[in-house]
Nucleic acid binder design. Sequence first.
DNA 1: ACTTTGACTTGCA
DNA 2: ATGCAAGCCAAAG
Length: 105
Amino acid sequence: MTTDDGFFARVYEAVRGIPRGRVATYGQVARWLGVARGARAVGWALRALDAQGSRRVPWHRVVGAGGRISLRAGVGPQLQRRRLRAEGVRFAGERVDLGRHGCRA
DNA sequence: ACTTTGACTTGCA
DNA sequence: ATGCAAGCCAAAG
């Protein structure tokens, strides 16, 4: 995989840089990397991440736009939701309370 | 080198 | 509020 020192590593660091109890959206992460429309690419990175063993990347802190929990093949959204909730993240129905934990301040 | 796909986003109906 | 379509980026085949 050429994902070791490419754009992926950057995504991992960005996600790793997300403080505990805080969540970020794919678009947000992509923007940090300088890729405004690279949301998909970010998803790609995280997906590969799972294949790599997740390392210490809190992928569960990465959600879709508006705080929606994206689906992942194999893992249900409940797991992610539960993990976030364990970090003190509040949920508004099926969405994360971005107004509180969203990195969109 | 080219084509297809993918954990997305935004807009319109 | 829900559903469908188009767009953009990067990686895998």
